[in-house]
Write a protein that binds this DNA or RNA. Structure first.
Lengths: 229, 229
DNA sequence: ACAAAAGTGTTGGCCCTACACCCATGA
DNA sequence: TCATGGGTGTAGGGCCAACACTTTTGT
């Protein structure tokens, strides 16, 4: 099987769709390109996969190098391989999506050349390469995943109020939810630990804070429990 | 951005997990390797991605070249990129899974050297490379997908009886289903067209045949309908 | 006549939906 | 005292699970 060594090969990259939540606004982390092609256009953070690292490692490395973001929820999304997706040469990209707690992760300023910045998903358009398509794919995946797996918590701070969680679901799923029914359902799952803390300094009744109990979730899942909505 | 042209690059392949259903037995289509490494071991059909074809095209091409199977339901599964997954050199594989109607697709005989053959999923073990892992991933995906999208029909003949459909669900999901409830639910969706035909030559009451109405499904989906179980 | 699978309805309980008012807090 | 979001219960309907016998056909 020596024939393999002679073949021309596509370049192989990773790209990351990084989601964050800011006051009920779903955001994306983008970087501005400083070189051609697509110079000055915004693009997904990403880059070449090294010979000694898995694709996921490459994604995490690029994410940290380009935006300073690390230690986040990261999952493979899809591999994009259209022949003409990169005008320079044949390039295949393994796309990942990440969920970050924006409160925890401060990102490099956008004012720097080549800096990173958060955009509302609705504003993230006309990106470099086929990144519009990748973003669209990621949004659909996030919507689907959120209904069937408790990953929304990855977008919230450790301690959050139920109304934050509800707003998150409303934003991502695109439908309003009934407050009483939402609370009943999510609390009935017994996945949230109520804390003895309430939010501080608000001009109305202070909300109780909760924390997602992931131990409990693992436990329930082993017993055949399936998260939904 | 000229640095890219100098870099060593991983080889890039596709692999296909091909599912078929045979009398209520879930099967996999494998090919026997004729070369090292893993000579004589069974493996997933697949091969290198060409410079002028997308990964999906490569998957379809390899599938036809190695097994004669074509025109099937095919979907991207996952991209496997562990550094040591190929002992020869760094190789990344974009895995696909396919669903074929075994009655329609006759496959090249396994007796040929390098031939293809169907294996029960439970027997498909000790495959070449990381193909055990790929198969396992595909089985999980199939299970998940089957519950939320009407793709089971891709494994059945055009005309099928409800008991075949039920057995399919039972096999893939691994749980017995109640006959009356199953029929009520699936018929209530109004996705199956009853035919004026019944099966022939059986030593018991002949079953009515049905056909999946995919036009109807597209229609319902545009109106917000979501298939489930 | 028997073996083997096809086909068919009802009931009880659970869950989901719809819906409106009082509470606590800071300004 | 007002504005703002936090927090709570119930009733009706639809959906799901459980369950057993009759029908048809070939041998």
């Amino acid at each position: 099987m020596t024939y393999r060594y002679d073949h021309p090969r596509p370049a192989l990259t990773v790209d990351c769709v990084v989601f964050g939540l800011d006051e009920g606004d779903l955001k994306l982390l983008l970087v501005q390109r400083s070189q051609e092609p697509f110079r000055h256009r915004w693009a997904l953070p990403g880059g070449l996969v090294g010979m000694e690292e898995s694709a996921e490692r490459a994604a995490r490395r690029e994410l940290e190098e380009e935006t300073g973001v690390r230690d986040v929820y990261l999952e493979q999304l899809y591999t994009f391989s259209a022949v003409d997706r990169d005008p320079r040469e044949r390039t295949i990209s393994i796309a990942y999506y990440a969920l970050v707690k924006m409160t925890d992760h401060v990102v490099r300023a956008a004012t720097d050349a080549g800096g990173a910045a958060w955009f509302s998903v609705t504003d993230a358009q006309d990106l470099a390469f086929d990144h519009d398509l990748i973003v669209h794919t990621a949004c659909e995946r996030l919507r689907g995943k959120l209904r069937y797996q408790p990953i929304g918590f990855e977008l919230l701070p450790e301690k959050f109020k139920l109304s934050q969680l509800q707003r998150l679901y409303e934003v991502v799923l695109g439908t309003p939810l009934d407050k009483r029914n939402f609370r009943k359902k999510i609390l009935a799952m017994d996945l949230l630990r109520p804390l003895d803390e309430v939010e501080q300094g608000v001009a109305h009744r202070a909300a109780r804070l909760y924390r997602f109990d992931s131990r409990r979730y693992q436990e329930l899942r082993r017993r055949g429990f399936n998260f939904e909505l």
